[in-house]
Design a protein around this nucleic acid. Structure first.
Length: 210
DNA sequence: CCCCAGGCGTCCA
DNA sequence: TGGACGCATGGG
């Protein structure tokens, strides 16, 4: 049988799951912090870390930048890799301050220079960069993650060794260049991955794409 | 007890 | 360039 098209996948997921209202964060700053904290980490653990920061009154650019790194690490402990992530967060914020002065200025840059800057920051890879661009800066770029790879691979739209950039081009070459669509599509792929296309015990029979 | 989660940098061939 | 490995908590 012929593989699904990217458009058909979107239609099926959208019908099955409905609107996703992503990213789960209130402000661009909080979205950016969450994007770093969720690296290879369950979102539930990220929420615990963000709640710790919120409760301590530390969920701000200045607070996170200026906190002693070991104190920050302790606050974000539930998100895992906490020493590395404390370092990555402070490095990111200091680079933003150095390059742009503040977050709002960074978010107003054009997509290409923003992506180039983010990828130059140690600890920010393609997925984290693109998540910040799409969900915090609200500019049209398609975010790829392990779920995307697994779902495309499983439905034979790609071979397993396809890399990040190839998958991103696949989406962006065949879909209209719309922030809202890219936002919703990625959120739907994550929802589908979490519920049906898990690494172990996948529920393929119940998947809306099967 | 096991395995995994909305990655990334480093090292080594 | 690409595969292995470390980073680490909390949930199933």
């Amino acid at each position: 049988m012929t593989p699904l098209t990217l458009d058909e996948i979107y239609q099926k997921l959208s019908k099955h799951f409905g609107p996703q209202h992503w990213w789960p964060g209130d402000t661009p700053f909080e979205i950016m912090i969450g994007a770093v904290l969720t690296q290879n980490t369950n979102w539930g653990n990220v929420e615990k870390a963000i709640n710790n920061l919120q409760a301590a009154g530390l969920l701000s650019f200045a607070a996170i930048l200026n906190l002693p790194q070991d104190v920050l690490a302790e606050q974000i402990r539930p998100s895992g890799y906490y020493n590395m992530k404390a370092n990555r967060l402070q490095n990111l914020l200091s680079k933003i301050e150095e390059e742009y002065g503040d977050l709002d200025c960074m978010l107003q840059q054009d997509l290409h220079s923003l992506r180039e800057f983010l990828l130059s920051v140690k600890g920010i890879g393609p997925e984290t960069a693109d998540s910040i661009i799409l969900y915090a800066a609200e500019k049209p770029i398609f975010v790829i993650d392990t779920y995307t790879h697994r779902i495309l691979s499983h439905h034979e739209l790609i071979c397993p060794e396809t890399d990040y950039n190839e998958m991103q081009e696949l989406f962006m070459d065949s879909l209209p260049n719309e922030t809202e669509l890219f936002n919703e599509y990625h959120a739907l792929l994550v929802m589908c991955g979490k519920n049906y296309c898990k690494k172990t015990k996948p529920k393929c029979a119940e998947c809306p794409l099967s």
